[in-house]
Design a protein around this nucleic acid. Structure first.
Lengths: 364, 364
DNA sequence: CCGTATTTGTTCGTATGTATT
DNA sequence: CAATACATACGAACAAATACG
């Protein structure tokens, strides 16, 4: 077999039909074209068509009636009792993930549900593949941390498939603009960063660098808070003080950009960072450059993670209610599972963060 | 079709083979004649033979191997194809858990398996409940971090149920003595602690405190390594220098015990800790007591976690191959899933740890 | 009720691809 | 490398169930 996709013809047809069903273009009870018609349309032999169909019959997507035709089966029957909830995260890291999943697990375990864990590594295609996989596994609901949520989601059709199959889902941390009217448990990222930058400005700092993640909505919103706080204090917004990084260059870009600024002699009073990881890296960079925190430069983190207390100079940061967020998401989802009309009642919780003042900021 | 039984040829062959298996004339592992051979013998086309075989493959009576042949499957219990693997951990914490699960996930995702995650909070009854739950959910295998593995397991019957149901499982980090001949991927805890204490002794320390967890087998084994290293250096074993703690008092007991020793004026040269978390706590205690590390007292950790590098004085510790361990466990489990006779071939991997020398130990 | 067209079900033959031994 | 075994694919014929005029 030497097809472009190096995939068997019958498998391609199988996937095609399966997709039509998942995407709702084929609804339960709908008749598919006859074997002969398909064979002619797709210029393959009837035998090959039959092979594809027989697999889908075996998997429960189709059923055949002798002399009548082949039809799409209603697969929603056993869905409601699996007592499994899918959790799709972007990263399984030491950072805030463990506490969030702890919160989710505590609520789900109490209600005798299990977590099916998937992580995308912030890869949009994996997100699509995993939603499809979980559709197959009959989960009763999903908790999803969106992948690259600042970008337009190309996986919209998969979310629509979830809607059609009556599988509720809750977004955490971020959401897609196209799916704004879905349930979501998020932090008020704008307000959080506003608090941090406002605090820096009140301490007398004027040249405040902002470091933000460009590819998720949290980064975009935190940047908004940064700009708003500057405006309040009549500090002109200078794009030269704003550093944007992406998932792919997260380990190099922020440090490199700050280093360039400082060695170019640009005045820097303070640096407000996208999160504690960045702040920790910036702290180490400044130390290596011979600058002391907070005497020479103040820095703020975000998330109130273990890093903010483990850092030699404890970081002033913005509280992220990690476990609580997981708990709320799980509770909201279970309510949606019980509610037949959940699509009309999306739940949006925007958690107000608070500033945690520690040792990494000083008066100017 | 006008056969005597008015039955399709392929159905007859199917029933015939199925009967041979049920009557025990075809035993698990036996090879059936090749498709061509059967076609010739029974004077039917190879296609018809294939149809019969494909049904039996689907029903789980046979399996085919490309290029080799078609074999009889061990079918005393219906081996499902849920493509789910249960993972039972003791804690979902920031500590080493995320990296271990990352390793597990990377291998399972590659093989299109999903993780069903359960955490016991080190509660033996929850362990039992979750094994039972996962039996219900048709997982194909389990990766289990044993709960309180130093104690005699009262959940033996649940593990026996797994055996009876042909659901393979792999222990990680520890194991139960009663289930010693099951697959297990563990660290050589004794050797690891031996290296650490040996290193301390070679630096000239004699009064070496050891802090160990009493309720898991890792603690017991690490204690053995501690004792062996002392013996090698002719340092008498003094129970007064050994601190045992349990899951429940892990946050208070070690610090309290060390504090008591020091305020009682007992000479302490070095402290070798059960893990980096304990070492980190002890570091903070010593700092608060005005002792400096490593000048006044040397300390060692265990696990090479983020804590050992985030600690203001970077900890000398023992390397724990967190991701690798997860990967190995997942690979071994998948091999067992494919092996009908996995119970006779337990895989035991004991990973040799190595000492990571950083800044928390000094010559006496 | 009959006949015809359509649709799925069964069977055969043939050819070629690919993995294993 | 050759032989063997399973995998994919095409084409053809006929059987059996159904739909419809």
């Amino acid at each position: 077999m030497h097809n472009e996709e190096s995939q068997a013809k019958y498998l391609k047809l199988k996937e095609y039909i399966k997709n039509e069903i998942l995407m709702g273009r084929l609804k339960p009870g709908d008749q598919i074209p006859s074997e002969n018609a398909l064979a002619q349309m797709l210029s393959m032999s009837r035998n090959t068509v039959r092979k594809a169909i027989s697999i889908l019959v075996n998997e429960g997507y189709l059923y055949t009636e002798h002399g009548r035709g082949t039809y799409c089966r209603d697969r929603n029957i056993n869905r409601k009792t699996s007592r499994n909830i899918g959790v799709i995260t972007t990263y399984i890291s030491e950072y805030i993930f463990p506490k969030v999943i702890q919160g989710i697990d505590s609520v789900l375990a109490q209600n005798k549900y299990s977590i099916i864990l998937k992580n995308t590594g912030n890869d949009v295609e994996k997100e699509a593949a995993y939603i499809e996989e979980l559709l197959d596994k009959d989960v009763e609901g999903l908790i999803i941390e969106p992948t690259k949520s600042a970008l337009f989601s190309c996986n919209l059709k998969y979310y629509e498939a979830l809607d059609r199959n009556n599988i509720p889902y809750v977004f955490i941390h971020g959401y897609y603009q196209q799916l704004e009217n879905r349930s979501q448990i998020i932090l008020d990222d704008e307000d959080g960063m506003y608090c941090a930058v406002n605090y820096l400005a009140e301490l007398g700092h004027r040249n405040i660098v902002g470091i933000f993640k460009a590819d998720d909505i949290q980064g975009v919103n935190r940047h908004k808070g940064y700009a708003r706080a500057l405006a309040k204090h009549d500090i002109p917004y200078d794009p030269g003080y704003v550093i944007w990084f992406h998932t792919e260059d997260r380990l190099t870009k922020p440090s490199y950009a700050v280093k360039s600024m400082i060695s170019a002699g640009k005045p820097v009073d303070a640096i407000s960072c996208y999160n504690d990881q960045i702040a920790f890296n910036i702290y180490e960079l400044l130390r290596d450059l011979g600058k002391s925190v907070p005497e020479d430069i103040s820095i703020t983190g975000f998330d109130d993670s273990y890093l903010s207390v483990n850092c030699p100079v404890k970081l002033t940061t913005v509280r992220h209610p990690k476990e609580e967020l997981g708990e709320i998401a799980a509770k909201v989802l279970l309510d949606m599972v019980a509610d037949n009309d959940y699509l009309s009642n999306p739940v949006k919780k925007i958690i107000k963060p608070e500033l945690i003042i520690r040792d990494s900021c000083a008066k100017r």
